[in-house]
Computed example of a mutant assay.
Amino acid sequence: MVFKVIVGAIEIAVLVACAYFGYQWAIHPDETYEPWLFLGGLVFVALEIVRRYEIHLIKREGKNLTPGELVKHSEELRKQFQEEIYKCRAEKLRKDVIIRHVNRMDSYPETDDNGKGISPWFRAGLLDTYHKGIMVGLRFGTLSEGPDGWRFTNYKENEEGDIKVYMVGKIPYENIEGVNFDGDEYYYFPHIFCHFANKGEPYEEIVFCEEIDMGNGHPYYKEIAKYDEVRENSRSWGGEYFA
C-alpha cells in the first residue's frame, strides 16, 4: 500500500513537471526543454514497468504470486482447511493448530523467551475460514460495553463482562506457505507455516468474534469489534487487557 502511494506521488510530480516544461517550451520555442520532456517520458515508462511487474521486482516477505497463482493457491488451501474444520466438528476433535514462522524454522520446538515481538511459533485454535483466509482463535474472554463501544473488561473493578468472545486473528491464504495436517513428534495437530508479513505478524487484522451456535455442531463466528477499536476504547474507559 505504501509503495503504491509513493509511486502515485512520483507520477503526479512528474506530470506537473512535464506540464510546466511543456508550457515553457510552447512560449519559448527556442529554449532546450526537449531533454526534460524526454526524461519525463522515460520516468512514466519506468513507473509503468514497476507497476506491472512490481510483484517480481520487489522482494518482500510473503508469497510473490500473480493474481492467477493467488486464486489457485487460495482455493487449494480453502478446500484443505474446510475439510479439516468439518472433520474436527463432526468428530468433536480439538481445534488446536501450531502457527510457525517460515523465516524462523530453526527456533522450533524451543521457546523464544526474549519478549521481543511475536513468538516464531505458537498454538492457536482453527475456528473457521473467511473469504481471504482462515480465522484462528488466539484467546477467549469477555468484553464490556462502554460509551463508545466495546472495551476490555475491567477486572480490577470486579466487572464480569457483558459478552463472551474470541480474539481472532485473520490469516490470509497468501501469507500461508504450506500446511502439515499430520503434525510431528512434538505436537500432533496441524502445523501452519506462515509468512509474518504484516508488521512481523501473520494476520491481516485481529478482531473479536462471538460464537453463535447454528445447530448440528456448526458454529458461526460473528464479528463484534476490531481489536484496535477495543484497545482505544479501553484506554479511555477502563480495562487494561483482554482475558
Rank of each mutant, 00 (worst) to 15 (best):
G68V: 08
E91C: 12
V97I: 13
V7S: 03
M105N: 07
P35H: 12
Q82S: 01
A46P: 09
E91F: 09
P120C: 01
E91T: 06
E54S: 12
I212H: 03
D113V: 11
G8C: 02
L93S: 08
K116Y: 14
P120S: 05
V136F: 00
V43Q: 00
F44H: 06
T32V: 13
I118P: 01
Y23L: 13
G215M: 08
L65I: 01
H218N: 15
K222L: 12
C18L: 06
N154Y: 03
G117F: 07
D128M: 01
G117W: 10
C194M: 04
I6C: 02
Y23W: 14
K199C: 07
T32Y: 13
R78S: 11
G22R: 07
V16N: 01
I27M: 03
I49H: 03
E240K: 13
N114A: 10
V43S: 01
P109Y: 05
W237G: 05
E48C: 05
R51Q: 13
E61V: 09
V14W: 00
H191A: 05
I6L: 15
I171K: 14
F208T: 03
R123Y: 07
T111I: 14
V97T: 10
G22L: 06
T153D: 03
N154I: 00
T153W: 00
D128R: 03
Y130M: 01
K87N: 07
A197W: 13
E145S: 13
E84C: 10
L70N: 13
F81H: 01
I134C: 13
G40H: 06
C194N: 05
R78Q: 09
G137A: 06
